[in-house]
């Protein structure tokens, strides 16, 4: 017993260091949100009493904080709902109505995973500008809706969906679309939860494309807003860390509540 514990000791030390390193920057962020800029810089690592002042200063400099929060929420929710709907219908279609032609289409769609966003950004900007959709929520959302990764994830989960149920529902006279909405979606809740968590997080944190297409500062998202906080003459690090905390806490809560679902989401497509 003690011999095996001793053999595990290096492993424990390594894991402990890795865990501390992983958590420390977040602890630093949280604590710094309650300290003055000078205390942050001088590496005070205990909670201070400056939280209210930081909040007031943040509000005075960036009145748009809660506007940006609302904008990010709308974008993340709309992206998640549309992405789940469209990708799950497709994933279901590829698996349930399986045919060789559809396999070929899937292979083509998978190639899109390898297209770097950089290579589509400028034409997308031109396209949405041409449609007068600069600054619109849908311009942010649409490029993020149909991802081969999510389609793959839903195809994998549809593979575990018993075909007999579909046959039985057909005999009962349900239309194909009704089978999908009334039977597939309710039974596949865990797949939807996994897809929802990763899509929401990605949409909430997306930076480059919103920065390109949301030109007016009144439409900026949370990541854009906190990024702009450092653009001033002097950065107030206490205020900055409070803003970063406000941007980060929602995703951290989602993560802590649904960690297994999140892990399922990022690895689900490849099983």
């Amino acid at each position: 017993m003690t011999r095996t514990s001793l053999r595990r000791l290096p492993g424990y030390i390594f894991l402990t260091i890795a865990a501390i390193v992983s958590v420390f920057p977040l602890y630093f962020m949280l604590v710094s949100a309650t300290n003055t800029s000078r205390e942050v810089i001088s590496s005070k690592l205990t909670p201070g009493g400056n939280l209210i002042n930081n909040y007031n200063a943040l509000m005075a400099s960036q009145q748009s904080l809660w506007v940006a929060f609302r904008q990010s929420t709308i974008i993340a929710v709309v992206t998640t709902v549309l992405a789940l709907l469209i990708c799950s219908i497709a994933g279901y279609g590829f698996e349930v109505f399986h045919s060789r032609g559809k396999d070929r289409l899937m292979a083509v769609l998978l190639l899109a995973i390898m297209i770097p966003f950089a290579a589509t950004m400028i034409p997308l900007f031109q396209m949405f500008a041409g449609l007068n959709m600069v600054n619109s929520v849908m311009a942010v959302v649409l490029p993020a809706v149909a991802t081969p990764f999510l389609i793959l994830l839903f195809r994998q989960s549809a593979r575990n969906f018993p075909h007999e149920i579909i046959e039985a529902a057909r005999i009962d006279g349900l239309s194909e679309i009704a089978i999908f909405f009334k039977i597939f979606i309710p039974t596949m809740r865990s797949a939807y939860a996994a897809a929802a968590v990763i899509t929401f997080m990605a949409a909430w944190n997306n930076f480059l494309w919103p920065k390109v297409i949301l030109i007016n500062s009144q439409f900026q998202t949370i990541p854009m807003m906190i990024s702009n906080l450092t653009a001033g003459y002097v950065t107030d690090f206490g205020v900055l860390m409070l803003a970063v905390t406000i941007a980060t806490l929602p995703t951290i809560f989602v993560f802590l509540a649904l960690q297994r679902v999140f892990a399922e989401g990022i690895t689900g497509a490849i099983k």
């Binding site: 920057p25 630093f28 930076f207 802590l256």
Partner: peptide, 27 residues
């Protein structure tokens, strides 16, 4: 959970935290 936790943090957020920690007179 601890080692997986950084994945919950947005790229802009963690970049700004690192920028603060590695400032010239920083932590």
């Amino acid at each position: 959970t601890a080692i997986f936790l950084p994945c919950a943090v947005g790229l802009v957020s963690y970049a700004l935290v690192f920028r603060t920690m590695f400032a010239n007179d920083g932590m």
